[in-house]
């Protein structure tokens, strides 16, 4: 068999395409929900990390450091295989989403913190002088400016989350990669794997390019 027939077999591709689409759908759901949960968690953590009383601030720092240090795969396996021993039994989807958003939240918290710290002190002072509360200052003045700064790194982090969804296949999540490996076994041909890789690329390459463009634009504006 030739290279094309082995890796890009049209007949196998057409036959396994429905499986891949099903897997892609699961991957996208997992990616989107983990990104969203990670954003909420990260924003909350960054507020605690910056403005809470010192014991909470300290705990937030420890959380952020721990979850940036632990490999997602290890965390996922702990959540899925270890937690049942203490009676917590999570579905593959919930396990994967938990692991992904716990880690994404830690990274997101650092991104938000950097974004907020990049806002000049004068913005806080002008808000205070006008009588705005700390909460109003954050919502009306600081965050709208910080979000512009953090969109490129947040997009970057989101790309990483989507890539890491592939790890969920080890806990029997029927995501894109899992469907592809199953289809490969079924068809006795690696074409579905190549198909899955191309689908990941098709979704993530434009995002990577977008981040590069945004970074260039923001960089140019700051000068």
């Amino acid at each position: 068999m030739g290279i094309v027939e082995t890796f890009l077999n049209a007949e196998v591709f057409v036959r396994t395409w429905p499986l891949l689409v099903k897997g892609l759908w699961v991957t996208l759901q997992l990616g989107a929900s983990s990104i969203l949960a990670g954003l909420v968690l990260g924003l909350g953590l960054s507020m605690v990390r910056l403005y809470a009383l010192w014991p909470l601030r300290f705990l937030a720092r420890i959380y952020i450091d721990v979850f940036r240090s632990i490999p997602v795969l290890v965390l996922l396996i702990v959540v899925y295989y270890a937690l049942p021993f203490v009676g917590i039994r999570l579905s593959p989807f919930v396990s994967a989403m938990t692991a992904l958003s716990l880690v994404s939240g830690a990274y997101t918290a650092e991104i938000f913190r950097a974004g907020i710290e990049a806002i000049p002190r004068g913005q806080f002072e002008a808000s205070a002088a006008l009588g705005l509360t700390a909460r109003q200052t954050m919502i009306d003045v600081i965050l709208p400016q910080a979000i512009r700064v953090v969109i490129p790194p947040l997009t970057n982090n989101s790309i990483n989350v989507v890539k890491d969804t592939a790890l969920a296949s080890v806990v029997a999540m029927p995501d894109l990669l899992k469907q592809a490996t199953q289809a490969q076994a079924l068809a006795a041909n690696p074409t579905p794997l190549i198909g899955a890789a191309l689908i990941y690329l098709a979704f993530l390459w434009p995002l990577v390019a977008l981040v590069t463009r945004m970074e260039r634009r923001f960089g140019a504006r700051r000068r």
């Binding site: 004068g122 002072e125 002008a126 002088a129 512009r148």
Partner: peptide, 12 residues
């Protein structure tokens, strides 16, 4: 009210 040397307007 306060007026600052560096204006501190809200740029957004």
């Amino acid at each position: 009210g306060m007026v600052f040397q560096s204006f501190n307007l809200f740029p957004h």
